[in-house]
Design a protein around this nucleic acid. Sequence first.
DNA 1: CAGCTACTCTGAACACTGTTCACCGATGAT
DNA 2: ATCATCGGTGAACAGTGTTCAGAGTAGCTG
Lengths: 276, 276
Amino acid sequence: MFTPAYTEVMSDELPALPWDRPRGRTRPPRIPLTRDRIVEAAYVVLDREGYDRLSMRMVAAELGVAVSALYAHVSSKDELLELMYSRFFADMDLPDPDPERWREQLRDYARAALAKLRSHRDLARISMGSVPFKPEMLPHMDALLGVFRAAGLPDRVAGAAGDVLSTFVDGFALEEGMWQDRYRATDELTWQGMREALERYFAELPPERFPHLTALSRSMFGRSNDERFDLGVEIIIRGLASFAAEAAAAGETATGETGNDGTGSDEAGATERPAG
Amino acid sequence: MFTPAYTEVMSDELPALPWDRPRGRTRPPRIPLTRDRIVEAAYVVLDREGYDRLSMRMVAAELGVAVSALYAHVSSKDELLELMYSRFFADMDLPDPDPERWREQLRDYARAALAKLRSHRDLARISMGSVPFKPEMLPHMDALLGVFRAAGLPDRVAGAAGDVLSTFVDGFALEEGMWQDRYRATDELTWQGMREALERYFAELPPERFPHLTALSRSMFGRSNDERFDLGVEIIIRGLASFAAEAAAAGETATGETGNDGTGSDEAGATERPAG
DNA sequence: CAGCTACTCTGAACACTGTTCACCGATGAT
DNA sequence: ATCATCGGTGAACAGTGTTCAGAGTAGCTG
């Protein structure tokens, strides 16, 4: 290790030693560390190494900086993860409620959210692991509630609809990521090959013990993941449509608000078939 | 440290030294370590300390045993977590499909699963973090598929229905647990107090920016969690009912199977996901 | 009963992790 | 030119999952 005094005195007249760090103006002006740069580096590490190997030391190494330097800008790893998660909501555009197009809007929003979750490896795990509420998601919650109300959902149902939709999107992305981790670890199988292997596995189970699994193995794994996702979203949308139709009917017959809590413990008004 | 030879020779004639471990028959016969005992101890630690503090060393301490002893019965912490997760499916009873009662059966199953997830602290996190498929869940998947088919769902929809339902149940329990962790850490608030605080928080947001959130804060947090859960399940059930009714109608008019994939308006099947 | 093997369990170690803290060097201000 | 401030450093601490040579015990064999 050279002492600073030595390099300061000598390097004005002599060329810099090859193993010595460049100094003066030749050295890049040392970009200061910021939260943003840290978050960015964390995403690089996440994409390259995955969630399990994402550590403060790796982020610091990515920035060419000591670990402890991070703690001047970020109070803990948890906070860093939350900052990463907050970026999730940054550049997603929000629907503005249109009663005519609420189904399409929900479908589009769900697809956009899934695409965002897929855009970084293991991002779904960060999303699922974060505290269930961040101020950044307020505009999203509000916009979604707006769509639900535009669809004609009673308030109680609107309040619960967001849960169903968001847990499905998050859970779907999480499961998808786990399969990827899985086959990343075991073999160099492609995603398609994995699905085929699963289909074969289920098809070859003893049919007397698992009659439905064996019969449906093709239906479960034959189609693409996107189709499975769309189908799930469609199930939810139709469920919401049923409540909307019910509310509309009640609104026509009686002007006052009904006390129906929407859980429909009986199986009466069900099977409201949407036109979609 | 005394050498074993010393204690062996002397302790027959002399009383045992007070700091020496009792030997011979007075010592409890040393119950052998088994996978089951380890899993059981892990659950004790989980309930007392929570998922974040669940470590191999704590499990070992709970059993009064060295850490490395665990690795003779369990190959890794991941395997231990999977063993814990496997217990989840052990004593849940399965519905046997009844076309007349499929809604009730799904509702009961969802409630039972939620109750199971609630029965141990942070169990939902283990569930969500586990690999998406375990052989123990085969009977459950088959039984659920049976219910879906009994309901009259087309195969494609039945294959996706399980995803929607299970991600909702898991996600709901996970979120609930996170709120609990949250208020456990910050204050000695009760669960009810937490909900009230949240309701107030949303109600006091600027209404011009968040018109729907402020308007619906009561609807979202006023009711109990169980009601919110039931409502979510009901949304899914109605969505499935819609597909079932559609299939029934198609089956009456035309005998052949229709090619409808159930996703409704397409326009997006694209973005087949690459494996990476 | 003695001797042996087989097996469980121990204690120490390794390579990590998140986090803290006394210092050091370069910056901007007096 | 001196001082103070502050961002960044390196070492340390307590904790993690995991491995491994070796005790100690149990049960089987001669």
